[in-house]
Amino acid sequence: MAKRVVPETARRRRRPTKQGQVLTHELIVETALRMLREHGEAGLTARRLGLALGADASTIYRYFRGMDDLILAIADELFGHAMADWAPTGDWRADLRDLGLRIHHAYLAHPQAAVLTASRVTGRPNEVASDEMILGILRGAGFPDAEAVRVYHAFIDQSLAFAILDAATLALPRAAREADEEVWRDTYARLPASTHPNIAATAPLLVARMNDSAYPIALDMLLSSAFRDGSSGTSR
C-alpha cells in the first residue's frame, strides 16, 4: 500500500541531519540524482539514500509515497533543468530546436537517471509547463490544434527516445562503450565491396558519423517536415 505523504509544513525536520542539512524535497531529489550518477539504478534504495542524507530511511517516506514516487520527481526535475532560464524568441522552429536540444542535454547530463525516467509521464509541474510551452509555440505559429498535437507528439517522443538511446550508451561501462564504438572501424570499415558494396562505399562516412548522436539531424528533419505540412502562421 502506498504510504501517506506528510504535508510540507509537518514533515520538515526540526533539526539538521548528521551532515548538518535540513531535509527538503529538493535536497532528496538532487541527492538521488547524484546517487544514480555514481552508482546506477541498483544503488538507489531508501536505505542508501537515507545514509547519504544522514537520516533514517523511513524519513524518505515522509516526503515521497515510495521509491517510484521519487523516480517521478527525478523525471520532473530533469525537465526543470531543461527549462531553466529558457525564454522563447518568437521563431517557432528555432525555439523548438533549442528546447529539444535542451531536453536531450538535460537527460544526457544524468544518463542513469535518463534511462530510468525518460519513458515516464509524471503530470508534475515542470513536465506540464514544458508541454504547455511546446503546444503554445506550435499554436502560436499557426498550426491547427490537431496538427499542433501531432507535431508535439512526434517532437516530445523523439526527444525522449533519443535521450534514452544516447543515455544508455553513456551509462555503459567505459570498456563496453569503447568496444562498441570500435566496431564501426574494426568490422564495418573492413567489409569487402564484393559482399557488402553499399557498406564498403560508405564506410569512411559511417566511421566518422555513427558514434555521434543522430538527434540534432532527426530533430531538424522533424521540424522541416512540420513546416512543410502544417504551419500556416507568420512566425516562421
Rank of each mutant, 00 (worst) to 15 (best):
T234A: 12
R209I: 10
Y63N: 04
A154H: 05
L36W: 02
L72F: 09
A113I: 06
I217H: 05
A114H: 02
D166L: 00
P173W: 04
V121S: 15
A42I: 10
L78I: 08
G43C: 05
Q158A: 03
G233S: 06
D212F: 07
R4L: 11
F227H: 13
R190Q: 14
R209K: 12
E8W: 08
R65D: 06
P7T: 04
A226C: 10
R37L: 13
A179W: 10
M221S: 10
R120I: 03
S231E: 05
R209H: 08
G43K: 03
A114E: 01
D166H: 01
M83E: 04
A75F: 02
S213I: 03
W92I: 04
P144D: 12
T59I: 13
F79T: 01
R124N: 08
H39E: 14
F64T: 00
Q112L: 08
I71V: 14
S130F: 14
L219K: 00
I134G: 00
R15T: 13
P197K: 07
A214E: 06
E38Y: 06
Y152K: 02
A106G: 09
S235Q: 11
N198W: 12
K3A: 14
A193M: 15
T122K: 07
R11T: 06
E26Y: 12
A175P: 10
G136H: 07
V151H: 00
L205N: 13
D69G: 11
A146T: 15
Q158N: 07
R185T: 02
W184Q: 08
A193L: 15
D180Y: 11
R47Y: 13
D95N: 06
R48I: 03
A113D: 04
S213N: 08
A179I: 11
H39K: 15
A176V: 13
K18C: 12
Y107I: 01
R97K: 15
R12D: 01
V128N: 12
R150F: 05
V183Q: 07
D76Q: 02
D157V: 02
N211M: 08
E181K: 06
A113E: 01
G50K: 04
V149M: 10
A161D: 04
A167V: 02
L78N: 01
T234K: 15
L206N: 07
M1F: 09
Y107S: 01
R209W: 12
P192I: 07
Q19V: 10
A57V: 09
A114S: 11
D180W: 10
E30A: 15
H81L: 14
L172Q: 11
G90R: 15
D229M: 14
E132D: 15
M210D: 14
